[in-house]
Design a protein around this nucleic acid. Structure first.
Lengths: 199, 199
DNA sequence: CAGGGACTTGATTGATCAATCAAGGTGCGT
DNA sequence: ACGCACCTTGATTGATCAATCAAGTCCCTG
């Protein structure tokens, strides 16, 4: 049965997010999953393969698990960008600013990750940016004509990750909120500039 | 002689930046420093105390080691902000995008750091932001009247850290450059708005 | 020269780690 | 009912880890 495999996988996902990859021992995963080491190594050759599978879960979960709930009832493409940021704010607020973006944490925790791990981290970032970019493309008529939506979407991820990092360090939402507020101000000025362009 | 202590400290600083705290063993530090475990534990009660001392070095080095070189020959306060960001770009470019900001890496690597460590991480961020904030205050006449320079300085750190994170993950300067370019565009629009205010 | 404090040496400890493996169980197709 | 593939069990392995400690060196002071 794959049920054991899934228990191991989701336990690992939770623990990697909570304590990081290096600080989570295989024994931790087994305890939380109620499994034995032989089972884990039956499904995954090494601990790193568990991480690879977890990163695959995140990649496949971007749309159904992250964007769908965040964008529920939000139609405006620009508002969707900020609704996505608000969902990270909720994650911070609901955990005393302990839990932010698991991908970002892993990306900085693993300094020279093996190629399969690094590729999956990069793919997660690329996927996230791609969805934001699609929002910005949908709002292209409200942005200045020469807007580089890919660069702007990258910037949105930058602001999220940088804001989460500081808020986690200070255990305060202040830095995250300040950063998102600045981004909001930037978008406002971009929309104003586009408005002027149209006149 | 404090020479041994310093060798241990600077070896630890280098290794923590290169491989992270958890992936650096005490034996690694001793090998690089050419010291023995007894010496390290003579100066530092635990490995964590080495980290605390390293973070103190970073804190004390912000001005002389980071800002002074970055701002050499740069008088304009806004240009100083971007000169600082350019120094992080150089760090990335000179290490194949492996080495970014050591404080940021440690901040995300240590998920629930003990108070002395967390405080020093926070102090490093606060110090950095404070110096940028001073630049922005010095350029207040070129920014909109109601500009929150503390929030804007926090935003600058956010952009640096978020950009470094993505560039390290992708092993490409693209995301960092795109993020800084967006920030530059934002500053340009802020200065334009201030210009209009003055008329 | 004697005594003592500061520092060094490096073997050692016990804990914890990822990973292995032989044995045993379970369920399914025939 | 048989056989086999799949999965589980849990003791075990050897490596590596942070930390300890007794013995020793060195130099300063009285």
């Amino acid at each position: 049965m794959d049920e054991t495999r899934d228990r191991i996988l989701f336990s690992a996902m939770r623990l990697f997010a909570e304590k990081g990859y290096l600080s989570t021992s295989v024994a931790d995963i087994l305890k939380e999953a109620g499994a034995h080491s032989g089972s884990l190594y039956h499904f995954f050759p090494t601990k790193q393969d568990v991480l690879v599978a977890v990163l695959g879960l995140y990649r496949d979960g971007i749309e159904p698990m992250l964007l769908a709930p965040a964008w529920d009832g939000v139609a405006d493409p620009v508002e969707r960008v900020f609704a996505l940021l608000a969902s990270y704010r909720r994650a911070l607020a609901g955990t005393d600013c302990l839990y932010g973006c698991p991908i970002g944490s892993l990306a900085l925790e693993l300094h020279e990750p093996d190629p399969p791990v690094r590729d999956l981290l990069a793919v997660n970032f690329t996927g996230w940016v791609g969805h934001v970019e699609a929002c910005l493309d949908a709002a292209a008529d409200r942005l200045p004509a020469n807007t580089d939506t890919h660069a702007l979407a990258t910037f949105v991820l930058t602001v999220m990750e940088g804001g989460v990092m500081q808020s986690r360090t200070h255990r305060t939402l202040e830095a995250f909120d300040a950063s998102v507020a600045q981004l909001r101000d930037y978008f406002m000025r971009l929309e104003q500039a586009a408005q002027r362009e149209r006149e």
